[in-house]
């Protein structure tokens, strides 16, 4: 086990339940690096997840306090929890189903409120724990178990959605950008407000097998790399390119939700005292 896993994770929960070559562990490893470089301790961070591959694989691996909400509701739980425990850092690690589909309303409204949490949306471009159906982030035309003739629906970019909703930090990376991801997550954690980091990673067992035609872990990670760079190994252009990097940085530009609530309470208390006099 690497040094950061020893420092921050629960030995009993490692190895995780992830399939071989799954990117979830990679990204979690980078989260640990960001946490470590920021000098945060286990007790400082509350780790929240949802359901699906990302929820199941990351839940209870974090050595500090964890919660695994029902599907899509991690941010709803975090909304209440943040009020009770305002001084903690929150890492809400969810999948594309949680963030971009079943829990989108909570995502939008957490962003609108500028809830002080960092959402890491680990996106494997489909519902892989249920066997590989398409999700709102599956690229158009790709074959999945529920789009056997190619994904006909247009997808959407959750980064655009949360930015429009008022998130104060929005960024996108992929599973082949380790240094960039660590840097971005550090910035996201430093924002006292709603931060959203969208990270695409490969699924070998389902998305790889059906959409890309292979379970070869190397080929699937290579596919992510090609679409991050916009160029294939042979020098030709990829069919599309993900725009990665920081998309919106207004860190600490407006007050955080629980801070607003506490300020209002202080104001109400002061008014009551003034009236009593």
């Amino acid at each position: 086990m690497n040094r950061l896993a020893k420092k921050y994770l629960r030995p009993s929960q490692i190895p995780t339940k992830a399939c071989h070559g799954c990117g979830i562990g990679m990204i979690e490893n980078w989260l640990l690096q960001a946490i470590d470089e920021m000098g945060l301790k286990q007790d400082d961070v509350i780790f929240g997840t949802g359901i699906g591959c990302v929820g199941r694989q990351t839940f209870a691996t974090w050595g500090g306090d964890n919660f695994g909400a029902t599907h899509g509701r991690a941010l709803a739980v975090a909304t209440g929890l943040k009020l009770a425990q305002p001084d903690k850092k929150y890492l809400i690690v969810v999948g594309d189903g949680d963030a971009a589909s079943i829990g989108t309303s909570h995502l939008i409204h957490a962003a609108r409120r500028n809830l002080g949490v960092t959402v890491i949306c680990e996106d494997n471009m489909g519902y892989e724990s249920t066997g590989g159906q398409f999700s709102p982030t599956t690229p158009a035309g790709y074959v999945t178990n529920s789009s056997p003739y190619g994904m006909v629906e247009p997808g959407f970019d959750p980064c655009d959605v949360v930015k429009a909703a008022g998130a104060t930090f929005v960024a996108e990376t992929t599973a082949t950008q380790w240094h960039q991801t660590v840097k971005i997550v550090k910035k996201a954690l430093a924002n006292d407000g709603f931060s959203f980091v969208h990270v695409r990673f490969p699924c070998n067992e389902n998305f790889g097998a059906y959409a890309l035609g292979t379970r070869d872990t190397l080929k699937n990670l290579e596919w992510i790399y090609e679409h991050t760079q916009g160029r294939k190994a042979d020098g030709t252009d990829a069919d599309f390119t993900w725009e990665t990097g920081i998309k919106h940085d207004a860190s600490n530009s407006r007050p955080e939700f629980s801070r607003l609530m506490r300020d209002m309470n202080a104001r109400v208390k002061a008014d009551m005292k003034a009236k009593q006099k």
């Binding site: 919660f67 509701r73 709803a76 739980v77 209440g80 929890l81």
Partner: peptide, 21 residues
């Protein structure tokens, strides 16, 4: 907290209760 829907409402209550309130 006036939530976006009842799902969020009760989950937020559960979260707050988990946090000690």
């Amino acid at each position: 907290v006036q939530c976006e829907d009842e799902l969020a409402g009760m989950h937020a209550c559960a979260g707050a209760s988990l946090g000690g309130l």
